[in-house]
Amino acid sequence: MHEEIIMAGFGGQGVMSMGQLLAYAGMLEDKEVSWLPSYGPEMRGGTANCSVIVSDDLVASPIVTDATAAIIMNKPSLGKFQDVVIPGGSLFVNSSLVDEKCGREDIDIYYIPANDVADEIGNSRVANMVMLGAYIKKTDIVTPDSVINSLKEVLGPSKAHLIPINEEALKKGAEFI
């Protein structure tokens, strides 16, 4: 098993933390992982992306050049990253914010209205978790439990009340697969 994922969107969409959670969950399952952010002078509002590798083998380069999957949270990111996915890979598009379709036929494409789903369950900020839920359902790379355990570690006891809604978001996302 060797997954190389690109996650991309606007700053503030939880792109970085989604990637960190996936890497964290992979580590909890004793897999080899890396997380690499894009970093730039813009602190907020710019485009953000990160590369995550989850693998049974040691991670050589943390840079993802041939992605097995991409999670696209906004429109500019679709144009930028749809071609990075290798044939046979998968693309997850946040259709709440991206009205374009990807024309590729050699990859699996899922359109998930992540913001709408997140709003339905009561917190627009868990749109990232909806996408992550779909991704881990499709690839089976880590279990939802590992993601939730990672989230518990990251949030700490003071924000434990946010766990159920995140769990719900992962589940809703999985239903799109």
Binding site: M27, V33, W35, L36, P37, Y39, P62, I63
Partner: peptide, 10 residues
């Protein structure tokens, strides 16, 4: 380098 400083690994 910037990559080593910014990346995450276990």
């Amino acid at each position: 380098d910037g990559m080593l400083g910014q990346m995450m690994e276990p």
